[in-house]
Design a protein around this nucleic acid. Structure first.
Length: 187
DNA sequence: CACCAGATCTTCT
DNA sequence: GAAGATCTGGTGG
């Protein structure tokens, strides 16, 4: 397993997101292959960084290759990796491979297809919470590793947002059956 | 399968 | 007071 170098993340979130498809995401031993991500930019109306630095989003303005974890709809946690200042990539789905038992317990279901399909589900399966906000992807508890095989990433529009819907910053692994939604489906 | 309400926290108007 | 980078369990076709 080859950890991704810091230089990989110090770029625009859209470029990082496209390249993360097919890579490995692991949190404290659980994880798998990234099949769906979304990029959020600094000048992006849909991004949490758009209106400037706040207490809850301060990690987005910190160093690259660190986690930005936010609470969604007051209930779910969602995991990002910070890229260039004010930019981040949201992890939306992985193909579960390592630590299946722990993920099944945390999610309370066995169905592999729904185990990590969606940002809230993925964070719950990996056991990520607000306590992980700002944690480094340094090969310790949080790992991002280069993919074993080359894959094709397909760009499509992001899900669940009302602003900048046309920007094609959602990237999925072509043909994967572990996506939260197939490409081309409106949220 | 499609649609809908409910849960519950942070920020914004 | 409302909306939001969501998910679940209900109802109805």
């Amino acid at each position: 397993m080859r950890p991704l170098p810091l230089s990989f993340f110090a770029r625009g979130a859209d470029a990082v997101a496209a390249d993360l498809v097919g890579c490995g995401l692991f949190v404290r031993g659980a994880g798998g292959t990234i099949v769906e991500v979304e990029a959020y930019g600094a000048e992006d109306p849909a991004s949490h960084s758009f209106r400037g630095e706040r207490v809850a989003n301060r990690a987005m303005f910190g160093p690259p290759a660190h986690a930005y974890v936010y609470r969604s709809y007051g209930i779910h946690w969602c995991l990002n990796v910070v890229c260039r200042r004010g930019e981040a990539v949201l992890f939306r789905a992985i193909e579960p491979e390592a630590g299946r038992d722990a993920m099944v317990v945390r999610r309370g279901l066995e169905d592999a297809r729904r185990l990590c399909a969606g940002p809230g589900r993925l964070a719950q399966a990996l056991g990520v919470t607000g306590a992980d906000d700002g944690r480094a992807f340094d090969g310790g508890e949080f790992v991002l590793a280069a993919g074993e095989r080359p894959v094709r990433a397909v760009a499509c529009s992001r899900i669940g947002i009302s602003k900048a819907r046309e920007t094609p910053w959602r990237f999925v692994l072509e043909g994967s059956r572990f996506l939260s939604r197939p490409p081309g489906v409106r949220a």
